[in-house]
Amino acid sequence: MLQNFLLNILLTFVWVALTGQLDYANFLFGYTMGFFILWMVNRSIRANTEYFYRVPKIFAFIFLFFYDLLKANFEVMKDVVTPNYNMKPGIVKYEMDAKTDFEITMLANMIALTPGTVVIDLSKDKKFMYIHVMYLTNKEEFKITLSNRIERKLLEILR
């Protein structure tokens, strides 16, 4: 995992040094090419392929996150611009799968960055999270979407 990542970075710098063009497009191109070359070289070794499935997952998660951010922003925007309120706020108790402090911090950051949801408190045994939700149509449905869409994918990347 770490070995493959360091090799990939090394290949990127070799590419940039050989071409001599110091800009972001060249860095990205070198990284992508090094990624595919390492993938082809390592394909036969079963234990080494974990890195090559994790990197696409990270990018897919970032894109999904920005899509969610935009969609939720427009929802909130509609409520701000129109004169009457159609929100249904409430505080929901949510049972997390995240165990360590780092995982909990990342999950809280993700929840805080999507508009309409704010983390208010953690329980003392770090098992439950209290979330203030602005559009609470159905409590169970909200919990299921949160755990399926964000938490499971985040933990897949971090673990």
Binding site: K88, P89, I91, K93, A112, V118, I120, S123, Y130
Partner: peptide, 26 residues
Amino acid sequence: FLISKVAYMTGTKLWKHSLMDELKDD
């Protein structure tokens, strides 16, 4: 996160049409 926690601890009220408050019960 910090300011919302402090606001709850110092007793800021929720909106009057709020549906539920599970933290208060706990």
